[in-house]
Amino acid sequence: MPSSLSSLEDQVVRILARYPKPRSAAMPILHLIQETQGFISKEAMEWVAARLDLQPAQILELVTFYPMFRQHPVGRNHLKICRTLPCALMGAESLRDHLLRKLGVKLDETTPDGRFTVSEVECLACCGSAPVLMVNDDLHENITPEKLEQILAACL
């Protein structure tokens, strides 16, 4: 068992205690792994499968079904632009292109300094203040190119 995963054992035990069947704990454990490791590796999926008496394919099914799970590391600041219709009508697409041009990356690529990764996500439930952008877990509303500059400057 990879040592970084075994350090999660206590938390995994607590999560398992919340469910009648171990299988039900798969989602929260995957979230825990992504939070602590940054992404969900193959080793992590194997570990979760063995820990829950599931087969590896059953874990990959979850990880590939839910877009919020990722199998690759991202930069320190994960910029998530909404791609759903209200944001698109309010200019999210040109904002996205602007951001990618400025950082010199493609979607889901990380800048060479490891600072930024840009991804598209589904609705962030703030259509009234479109377009919106999330930086890691922080939501930013009514984004304009100027506002974007300030947000990027504030990112470490």
Binding site: Q58, L60, E61, T64, F65
Partner: peptide
């Protein structure tokens, strides 16, 4: 009983 196969992506 092997569950080698599953449905990936969406």
């Amino acid at each position: 009983g092997a569950h080698t196969l599953d449905l990936g992506n969406r």
